[in-house]
């Protein structure tokens, strides 16, 4: 079960990183700035990848 959960979600840092990316996209969308999310979300993803790579 542990292996399955790890395959699906990764570790806690992985979940936190993706949650932050989705939060950025959701916040921009909900405040009427969805067009900015097109730029901000990929940038946030790349930042998340960099953060995870360093840990």
């Amino acid at each position: 079960m542990k292996a399955l959960l790890k395959t699906l979600f990764g570790d806690a840092r992985n979940v936190a990183a993706v949650a932050a990316v989705v939060a950025v996209a959701a916040a921009l969308t909900k405040t009427g700035h969805a067009a900015w999310a097109v730029v901000a979300m990929p940038a946030a993803c790349l930042a998340a990848v960099g953060w995870l790579a360093r840990s």
Binding site: F9, G10, A17, C45, A53
Partner: peptide, 13 residues
């Protein structure tokens, strides 16, 4: 995203 970011991060590391 959960899958892809960790593959990219590990490959970069």
């Amino acid at each position: 995203l959960l899958f892809g970011v960790r593959w990219m991060a590990k490959a970069i590391a």
